[in-house]
Write a protein that binds this DNA or RNA. Structure first.
Lengths: 107, 107
DNA sequence: TAAACGTACAACCAAATGGTTACATATTCA
DNA sequence: TGAATATGTAACCATTTGGTTGTACGTTTA
């Protein structure tokens, strides 16, 4: 396989619904691994693997605090997705797309 | 594995860089399979599989025209990604995010 | 200090993913 | 009609993905 496979692939990171749910949880609050794992019907180990993938995409980071590892969200890499999407918004053809493109440029 | 795995998963569809490139090509012009395949360093069969996944996500559709099958883009399902992203924009904290949220509501 | 807690990680596994080759079928055109 | 063109599809394969269990290790806390 070729596929370039950038190590920090945000598109691949958000492709999984479990990982999107992790992001939602962390958008509410930073949380230790065990608390995140409690929200899912899978082992803590499995959740840890998802956390690693999100970490590689730099969407989250974890700090050690005592015996816990506390994860927090970093949504900035989502700008790559946002910019990718922006290209396709012109194909929607709704009236506000022009205004939104102008707003985009100010960022 | 659980993973819900909706048959029309737009997040999974756009996770692959080849499929994103297919979308870009089709955003320029509708094209037959062989023309799409010419842009990639892989077999036509492999490209066809990507076209099937994009079709299942309803991001493209193909019509038979003579011996050709011509694909065109349908970007509408990307709104799901856009809406998902919108939730995280408030975490950016840039000054225009409020205006953009208002604009969003008009659609 | 010993037990409980939270995490790390190795080893393993089934299924999905992303690719291949080979061959069949439908359409066009000389 | 027969050859060339465009696509469809079956069979196969290696790697990745998403999960498991078991064990080890550092940190609290009774």
């Amino acid at each position: 396989m070729v596929a370039s496979a950038e190590k920090h692939d945000v598109f691949k990171a958000i492709a999984d619904s479990t990982r999107r749910e992790v992001l939602r949880l962390l958008s509410e609050n930073e949380r230790p691994i065990s608390e995140i794992a409690d929200h899912f019907d899978m082992s803590r180990t499995a959740v840890t693997k998802h956390l690693q993938i999100l970490t590689e995409a730099e969407l989250i980071s974890g700090r050690k605090e005592g015996r816990e590892k506390i994860y927090q969200i970093h949504p900035e890499p989502l700008t790559e997705v946002k910019q990718w999407l922006a290209y396709y918004e012109k194909f929607w053809g709704n009236k506000l797309s022009m205004l939104k493109h102008l707003v985009e440029k100010e960022e």
